Computed example of a mutant assay.
Amino acid sequence: MQTKKTYTVEEATRKLEHYCAYQERCHQEVQQKLEGMHMIPEAIDVIIVHLLEHNFLNEERFAKTFVRGKFKFKAWGRRRLTFELKKKDISKVNINQALTEVPEEVYVDTFNDLAEKKANSITENNIYKKKKKFIDYFLYRGWESHLVYTKANELIK
């Protein structure tokens, strides 16, 4: 029979400090980690308060880091970024503040560069199918529909 590892509040606190120091975390991830460690709700509250007080856990910082990273490496648009942050229970205020991390001109330039590359990489001969592939690609990644449709009509003729 396998027994579950149990942790004292101090051990769990140290473990979660390392967990949060390694990478920015949201409250939901920390909560799930603690529940996975089989901590009781009172201990979870004590540990989360400790992490907040000692700045290991900061929702605003997490949201900003998340937006910068996903925009830079995965080229997600604002709609997808907002959706993913909402899934992590990040407040609307922090989401809006995080979205300001990407300047408008950088956002549009990135979209235009990606659109040119994608339009050139689609090998479909049928114009309508090519447009559909182009549009689906960008809508899935959360780019605004008005940008996507305008660019599709401009690039694919």
Rank of each mutant, 00 (worst) to 15 (best):
125 N>Y: 08
19 Y>N: 07
97 Q>T: 11
110 T>W: 09
46 V>G: 00
49 V>W: 00
156 I>A: 06
142 G>V: 03
42 E>W: 00
20 C>M: 11
37 M>H: 05
127 I>C: 06
150 T>L: 09
80 R>K: 15
65 T>I: 03
102 V>D: 03
95 I>T: 13
99 L>I: 05
115 A>S: 08
155 L>Y: 00
91 S>H: 09
20 C>L: 13
98 A>K: 09
67 V>L: 00
94 N>W: 11
135 I>L: 01
92 K>M: 12
35 E>L: 09
105 E>K: 13
21 A>S: 15
110 T>A: 12
129 K>H: 10
85 L>A: 14
79 R>V: 11
43 A>E: 13
26 C>N: 15
27 H>T: 12
149 Y>H: 11
28 Q>H: 09
85 L>Q: 12
34 L>F: 04
47 I>K: 01
16 L>I: 10
57 L>Q: 09
149 Y>M: 08
51 L>G: 08
155 L>D: 04
35 E>Q: 13
44 I>C: 10
151 K>R: 14
88 K>I: 07
61 R>A: 15
21 A>Y: 14
84 E>R: 14
115 A>F: 06
131 K>F: 03
90 I>W: 10
153 N>T: 03
141 R>V: 07
37 M>C: 03
17 E>K: 14
79 R>W: 01
121 S>K: 11
129 K>P: 01
94 N>Y: 15
124 E>K: 07
39 M>P: 02
112 N>I: 08
98 A>Y: 06
102 V>H: 02
36 G>F: 02
62 F>E: 09
157 K>G: 01
84 E>H: 12
57 L>V: 10
81 L>R: 04
100 T>Q: 13
54 H>K: 11
131 K>Y: 03
113 D>S: 12
19 Y>L: 07
148 V>F: 03
89 D>P: 00
93 V>N: 05
60 E>S: 15
157 K>P: 02
127 I>R: 13
77 G>A: 05
18 H>I: 02
88 K>H: 13
105 E>D: 13
39 M>S: 04
88 K>R: 15
24 E>R: 14
126 N>T: 08
66 F>Y: 14
111 F>V: 04
64 K>A: 12
128 Y>I: 10
121 S>I: 00
19 Y>H: 10
156 I>V: 02
139 L>M: 11
89 D>W: 02
97 Q>R: 14
119 A>V: 00
85 L>D: 12
52 L>M: 06
131 K>V: 03
109 D>Y: 07
73 F>I: 08
19 Y>A: 07
64 K>L: 05
76 W>G: 02
56 F>Y: 15
76 W>F: 15
103 P>W: 05
74 K>N: 14
118 K>W: 01
31 Q>C: 04
56 F>G: 02
123 T>L: 05
23 Q>E: 15
20 C>R: 07
124 E>T: 13
